[in-house]
Amino acid sequence: MGGKVTCTLGEVKQRADFIIYWGGNPAECHPRHFSKYTLMQKSKFLPKGRKDRTMVLVDIRETKSVKASDIFLQVRPGKDFELITILRALVKEQQVTDEQIEETGLSREALNDLVSRMKAAKFGCMFFGMGLSMTRGKHMNSAALLTLAAEMNAFTKFVAMPMRGHGNVTGADVIMRWQTGFPFGISFNRGYPRYNPGEFSTIDVLVRGDCDAAFIIGADPGGTMPQPAINHLKRIPTIVLDPHITHTSKLARVHITTAAQGIAAPGTAYRMDEIPMPLKPALKSPYPSDEEVVRRINEAIAKKPFWLPEGSMPQMVTEQV
């Protein structure tokens, strides 16, 4: 799991008596997270269920999840990294000035209370959402929170887990790690995988206009990405695989309708804690599955000459064949 201090949702359900949700709104975005895993379930170790658990919500505004929380900490927008850093200092009883605390929009009492509760917990778990990982600081925020979780283990058991949205996006990470060694932002243009987010990540590639064709599957960048990225998708040949005609399909050269995963197409999907789940499709779709279409495209490409000049193959590929 990439060195992060984490666990499965089953462990959270059985053992976690202290839960922090940071920058997420599970009440509306993951409606069954509370009832199925984190708050309502009773277990051998938490026989009274909700009464045995404490839930802290950290967010920039009051969402519907506040009602489910015991403590709500409203952090000033863009100050998550500062707050996590202050917590890391307070946990280790290092000096923090009043100005530094004031900057986050919270009081020293509230933070001292949080730290003592974290240390008193038997099993703490921090779930972080896009409010943390997609705002100012981005992956540095996630990294700071994961470090805080790791450092808390000097006092008690503590873990952290991202709140993944979008169905099987966790599976994409897992499959790419398995196949290439890297989770996303990969280039094969030297014949072997290289990882460099910022250079090979999609928005950057599209905004700079680096790619000259795009194959979009199970996503709708035409509806979600910034305009310069969409403009580049319009300029280049774009191929879309989707169960619906999406915004991206309308600007694409080729659209192929496929069966919806889990409803009409079988397969596997990963839960946010990286547990694979078999799918049980109910319907028989008139459309082929994504898997079948991509495999057939692969077969069609394999019949064409390799992409090196005159179709010559790199040595390591020839040896394997």
Binding site: C211, F215, G218, A219, Y270
Partner: peptide, 13 residues
């Protein structure tokens, strides 16, 4: 070419 997305699809795909 860019291959992008893979959220709403199966691990096999």
């Amino acid at each position: 070419p860019l291959v992008y997305g893979m959220s709403n699809t199966t691990c096999e795909a």
